[in-house]
Design a protein around this nucleic acid. Sequence first.
DNA 1: AGCACGCCGACT
DNA 2: GTCGGCGTGCTC
Length: 654
Amino acid sequence: MIVHVAFPLPIIKTFSYAVPDNWKPFVKRFLSVRVPFKHKTLTGFIVDMEEGDGANLKEIIEIIDIFPLIHDRLVRLSEWASCYYITPIGLVLKYALPSSLQIEQYLTVRTNEGSVAILNNVPLKKAFHAFGKDTIFRYYSEGLIEFYDLFTGKTFAPFTSDHEPEEKPEHILYVGDIKNRLAYYTACISTHLESGKNVLMLLPDYHTTGRYFYQALSEQFQNRVLWYGASMKGKARMETYFRARSEGGLVILGNKSCPFLPIYNNALIIVERQEEDEYRNEKGFKFNAGLLAIQRAEIEHIPIVLGSAAPSVEYFKYVEDGAFNLIETGWLKNRTCFEITIGKNIISYEALPEELVNTIRAALEKKVHVAIYTPRKDYSSYIQCLECKKLFLCPLCDGIMSYQKHEDLLICNSCNKGYKYEERCPYCGSKLIHFSHIGTEYLEEKLRHIFTDVQIMKISGETPKQDIKTLKNVSNSAPTIIIGTQILSKLYNLQVNTLILLGWEELRRIGGFRAEEKMFQVLINLLDALNPEELYIVMERKKRVNPSYFLDFKTFYKEELKKRSTAEFPPYTRLFLIEVEKKSEEAGAMVVNKIKDMIEQEGLTGYMTGPLIKKKKKYRWSIILKGNAALFHKSLSLIYNLPGVRIEADPLYI
DNA sequence: AGCACGCCGACT
DNA sequence: GTCGGCGTGCTC
């Protein structure tokens, strides 16, 4: 017998191995196996079998799982994801399959058979050790023994068709503020839990939105609320795994690591703020967990709720197409916005613009909290020499450098490398350095100068969890100025009176075709979380955008969809970014031509840029491909395997 | 991805 | 003359 094994490696290809006699009876698709690969042993996944002796092939070392730890619907989800994201199935399965070695630790043997009575209540690992793994496999396949887990005491067996798929499960786009969303989610969850079913709920992160929902839902459903996340330590994580797999009446909360979690009687999936970037996994298998959840609901025939105050524009198209039903309650409407227009770059003010200072002062006099949003966490992210006019760029990768004052470092925005700041231009040595595009550090410095006796807090995505917790107490304390980045939009517990946006309009420059959508989401989600009574937007006159365009979601998404449709951008087409990187220009040009030929043969058009000459003689090309992935999946798989080529499906910024 | 092989520059 | 830098390509 020959098995085809997929590895969690960036190769779209499977490898064939022979199966020794002792393992033959147990071979099944989607079992993990240990095999020799190159000079090491590696864990892969059986994705196919065929007859034959495979005399010229290497043999598998052992089968790891006693039965496939994934059921048919999750297999379909994995296969869909592999296709959709042009990613090797092995990389997908690494995310979809729990580590068998972890599972074994919590399993015990159970038997009524006299012949193997000695094994009763023996931990599985011990049983493997004492009898040999293949012997235990044989006992299991002969029905002599079974296993139970330590958390539920229930039998650990392959997933059977447990759920009752709905005829026409509803897909709901719920547009509303956080209070209404929580009430809606709670009502949906309650119905399902009462009938003994389970609900899976995806959240963008663990520490802010995760904590908020965990606490709110625990008040309602007590110990029937579980969390499943990557940051969890072994035992707690496995408890959720086993309970979700065999108990009913639970709501399982998790972040991007849970769209593949096997769930018994899964009746509903909820995705909170599907538009958040945290749902994107950037390592190895680049997926969007929110999108996987939607596909999972489709495959499992269960309803799904996407809830947000600022959903991605594409879902409004799906509403128009009839694929989603829109529910709209309690949106943040009739919000007045005060604009503070300034004539010059904020950094050219001695302190801060007077009107801004007065606004903050007026709020503080009312004894209320003020939140100030700015898109960057550092001091400044655009540093230029005034003499030679050159921009400070990373010596390693040419990325734009930010200045981080508290450590006096220049930090590359692309590769994160830090360099000591020498206070002069690296090109001409001049000491006339100009900073612009200010961030939270700059604001904190200036505000501390002006408001010497006011409590000022600064938070960003890097703020330790402990500090974020203490923010909860801010609501009852003396008037505070809270300076923060986008993380402010997640602090549902914080009540502020005045919200000020500073540098928000700069998002337009960095966001590609999604720039305005991003601006919409940042603005609306800040309002959603902080629920301020007064909103101020500080903008430079020449960069001014009209805030009211973003404050009515119905007109906003209609306009936005119109633009996307004319320019042929998602959701009207899919995008793929093919990046080629080579040390020599000739080698790169060869690969690029090869790719162009393949694309042409498929009758497709790609938009190419390059070669961009990078530092250290690295040449880079990028090709943007537009179209329906199903049509050219085969060529993209071939392109994926070319050395020096990377493919990114649904790129964020182009 | 990771790792061995291989082809050019600075050294005892 | 070699040692080791990293670029290239293969893995059943």
